[in-house]
Design a protein around this nucleic acid. Structure first.
Lengths: 136, 136, 136, 136
DNA sequence: GTGGTCTAGACCACT
DNA sequence: GTGGTCTAGACCACC
């Protein structure tokens, strides 16, 4: 069991959600080097997504040095995965922040405006993952 | 003169870049109510984009109550545009922030991590993105 | 002097505004049969519109039997103009009403809804011609 | 099933006809929150118009808060759509009424004239424009 | 298959 | 010349 959840309503592509969550699991030590991941088909079935989507995520994490694929034997968490995961996580966060800043730039707002709005927002509900998913 | 620039490399759509910049100009009072905007075709020529793209931006801003278009006479900044622009700007920033927060959630980071990364980034270069249009 | 005013902000085309107002003047007896109208150029200068626009209005009213043009002598109010004007006015109003009703149809509203909204509106300010024209 | 019909003869633009009819369906609860709308291409094919025209309508309704579009998953009726739809409908009707009143002003008629003509018209055929979709 | 974006170009009514 | 509308068709990322 791996505790990956998909939010189909989100704008973040499904494959990216999977990548980010697997990476977080590795980074936090919930998945240690050597551990076997579910097969592409298995995980696809569990998450009810297209196998291509899982394959895409695995390939990506392999490129990041977090997973390693042993031909015909399966996919495993790589040695040193945790460090790679931390690095990648930082990169990812930075990118996201870069996007807010670009946005603020377009809106012609300064850094103070951003931080202020950010703090206002975070004070609001204390923790991340706002409830989501109202599809019928 | 209006100082709108397009960054074709950005993955913010062209029409959105135009909307955001015009909205900022109005919000800051650089474009006051009653002022005529360049014609659809004129601005299209200046920015080297298709007239449809400009028309899309103008229509959007009209729906936001920021522009008003007098059929066949041209497009003008609406009365009360500044207030409408501020409201819309806030909405836009909030959306962008929502996106970072969602991102952080996927990475399994808490609000403190976000703010820290944000402050680090903003401290980094003092003030990034100086107010547009003032090449010192 | 003829008391015709143009509202360039209105959606109603300028030529139609002129037609409607001249027709009203005739209908109410402020312009009686035989009276000469200003020349196309004269009226165009007074109203600060393109002569084509005036010519278009005169031609239209001629078709309605309200004006008559005597080659090289000018344009005059026709005999029986008043009756023609009344008929045309009725037609015009009906068209306008037809448009609200079509609109309400699209919005899927019934006649009661229309009358109610109409009465609400008319109760509001008692008389027609709301102030208009905020162009800078 | 959605019962949207286009009247190419009408001078209400096609995209506006679609907007108005979808809005009416939502307002009356025939389309409830969460319901998926036909895809842009599907509806375009059904109505025999260009996909761009449908996209324009969907985008507009999204900005009105009536639809919500989940990128690449489809377009849905938004939460609280009904209230948004009512508000927008009111705005639309008011605009239409404003147009009759302006018209009457040009014809130099008073509010009583308008209401009288209106009532005459509405009495004329009992109820014109029966609620769409019920061919008895 | 989905929606999103953009281009190119047409036609219209009006000024 | 103006804005408005519409078509046709392209390319993209994602599922």
């Amino acid at each position: 069991m791996m505790r990956v959840t998909i939010d189909t309503a989100s704008d973040t592509p499904v494959y990216a959600q999977i990548i980010d969550q697997l990476r977080a699991l590795v980074r936090e030590g919930n998945l240690s080097p050597g551990t076997a991941l579910p097969s592409v088909r298995q995980l696809a079935a569990d998450l009810e997504v297209n196998p291509n989507t899982i394959a895409r995520a695995y390939t990506w994490l392999e490129q990041e040095g977090i997973l390693r694929t042993a031909a015909r034997r399966g996919t495993f968490v790589a040695e040193g995965a945790s460090a790679s995961a931390s690095r990648a996580t930082d990169r990812r966060l930075d990118e996201a922040i870069e996007r807010v800043i670009e946005q603020a730039g377009l809106l012609n707002l300064g850094p103070r405006d951003i931080l202020a709005a950010m703090e206002r927002r975070l004070a609001g509900d204390g923790f991340d993952h706002p409830p989501r998913g109202e599809e019928t």
